[in-house]
Simulated scan of single mutants.
Amino acid sequence: MAKIEARLEELGIQLPDAPAPAANYVPFVRTGNQLFVSGQISNGPEGLIRGKLGDGMDVEEGAMAARFCGLALIAQAKAAIGDLDKLRVVKLVGFVNSTTDFTDQPKVINGCSDLMVEVFGEAGRHARSAVSAASLPMGVAVEIEAIFEVA
Rank of each mutant, 00 (worst) to 15 (best):
Pro45Asn: 03
Gly47His: 03
Ala123Met: 02
Lys86Arg: 02
Ser98His: 10
Val90Ser: 06
Ser38Met: 10
Gly32Lys: 01
Tyr25Asp: 04
Leu11Cys: 09
Cys69Pro: 12
Ala22Asn: 06
Lys107His: 14
Asp85Tyr: 01
Gln34Pro: 00
Glu61Arg: 12
Phe28Asp: 01
Gly70Asp: 14
Cys112Met: 15
Tyr25Pro: 05
Asp104Glu: 13
Leu87Tyr: 01
Glu10Val: 02
Pro16Ile: 08
Glu145Pro: 01
Ile41Gln: 04
Asn33Ser: 06
Pro137Ile: 10
Ile4Leu: 05
Leu11Gln: 12
Ser98Glu: 10
Gly70Lys: 11
Glu118Cys: 03
Pro137Met: 05
Leu84Thr: 05
Ile109Tyr: 05
Leu136Thr: 07
Ser129Tyr: 08
Arg128Pro: 12
Gln34Met: 03
Val89Tyr: 11
Val119Ser: 09
Ile74Ser: 00
Val117Phe: 10
Ala77Thr: 06
Ala63Val: 08
Phe28Met: 02
Pro19His: 00
Ala18His: 02
Ala133Thr: 13
Asp83Lys: 05
Phe102Gln: 13
Pro27Ile: 01
Thr100Gln: 13
Ser113Ile: 15
Gly54Trp: 13
Met138Ala: 03
Asn33Asp: 09
Ser129Cys: 11
Arg30Ser: 12
Ala65Tyr: 06
Ala2Tyr: 10
Ala72Phe: 06
Lys107Gln: 15
Ser42Asn: 02
Val59Phe: 07
Lys86Met: 01
Met1Gly: 12
Lys78Met: 07
Pro16Ser: 01
Gln105Ala: 15
Asp17His: 00
Val90Asn: 05
Gly12Arg: 01
Ser135Thr: 09
Leu8Trp: 07
Val140Glu: 08
Phe102Leu: 14
Glu5Ile: 12
Ile109Ala: 06
Asn24Thr: 09
Gly82Ile: 11
Val59Asn: 12
Ile144Gln: 14
Thr99Met: 06
Ala6Gly: 08
Lys107Val: 11
Val96His: 14
Ile4Tyr: 07
Phe36Asp: 02
Val89Asn: 08
Asp83Thr: 03
Ile4Ala: 04
Ile41Asp: 02
Glu149Tyr: 13
Glu46His: 01
Lys107Cys: 13
Ile109Gly: 04
Asn24Glu: 08
Ala66Trp: 08
Cys112Val: 15
Ser42Met: 02
Leu73Gly: 10
Ser98Thr: 13
Lys91Ala: 14
Phe148Trp: 10
Asp114Arg: 15
Arg125Ile: 14
Gly32Cys: 04
Gly124Arg: 05
Gly32Met: 04
Ile109Asp: 07
Gly121Trp: 04
Glu61Trp: 06
Val89Thr: 13
Pro106Met: 14
Asp58Ile: 06
Asp85Gln: 05
Met138Tyr: 00
Gly139Asp: 03
Gly111Trp: 09
Glu118Asp: 14
Glu145Leu: 09
Asp114Trp: 15
Lys3Asp: 11
Ala80Trp: 10
Cys69Lys: 04
Ala133Asp: 13
Gly121Asn: 07
Met138Trp: 00
Asp104Gly: 11
Val26Pro: 00
Leu15Gly: 08
Cys69Arg: 03
Gln76Met: 05
Gln105Tyr: 11
Ile144Gly: 15
Gly139Pro: 05
Arg7Gln: 15
Asp101Phe: 11
Pro137Thr: 11
Val131Asn: 12
Glu143Pro: 06
Ala77Cys: 07
Ala72Asn: 09
Ala23Pro: 07
Arg125Cys: 13
Val108Gly: 06
Glu143Asp: 13
